[in-house]
Design a protein around this nucleic acid. Sequence first.
DNA 1: CAGAATCCCATTTGATACTG
DNA 2: CAGTATCAAATGGGATTCTG
Lengths: 124, 124
Amino acid sequence: MGRTRHDRLDCSPGCAVEATLTLIDGKWKGVVLFHLLDGTLRFNEIRRKLPSVTQRMLTHQLREMEADGLISRTVFPQVPPRVDYALTDRGRSLQPVLMALKQWGDANADLFPQMKPSGTCDAA
Amino acid sequence: MGRTRHDRLDCSPGCAVEATLTLIDGKWKGVVLFHLLDGTLRFNEIRRKLPSVTQRMLTHQLREMEADGLISRTVFPQVPPRVDYALTDRGRSLQPVLMALKQWGDANADLFPQMKPSGTCDAA
DNA sequence: CAGAATCCCATTTGATACTG
DNA sequence: CAGTATCAAATGGGATTCTG
């Protein structure tokens, strides 16, 4: 086990750009973080917002973001289980980054044919 | 062949976030775009700024960004060859995104032990 | 409900050598 | 100088099944 994901960083004036990217790429991390901006979510609530994610991947991405200190994971010892995910302070500090990414994506929607117009689905 | 890189997009309020990410993840794209903010660069100039990138990877990433309309590639028919890379208007419009990524990375440098302080290397 | 375990395929990345 | 070509390794990601 270990944090080999950030080993790709070398020294360069722009490496902070890549550094941040290593934390939020991964197939679903961006969207998950974005949704968590609106508040705490349970595992299946996140799943429902991401129509085509598998449990395996969602679990994996969530664990990585937890290890990176971007989100917190709270397990309620009850049956059936309940696990809450929320942004940490560090995770919340990504808000400007996430908003910049979203704004650019919306402004350049023509690049993404399969992306439906913003607000077509259930709003956050 | 084709543009399968953006097929990962599904419908979700935050999918524009992922959409943008599909364009700038890739191991070196972020840094390359960042450096191009300062102006046109030749192939080997970019290489020199990225100590550990291979020609193969750099070529590949540049071609993808060209296909996505983020950068332009100008070949000068001369010997030895000269190829200039520059941001397109669309690429330049990523500036706020890139700066947000860089700022966050610098502010959270403690997460990246192997990242030397900003400005340690040759400045852009 | 929120996962863990296993298997397997696709894509990404790297190493190396060669070229107009 | 700015690439290509080829091979191999690492990683990412999906499908499915099982469980406390």
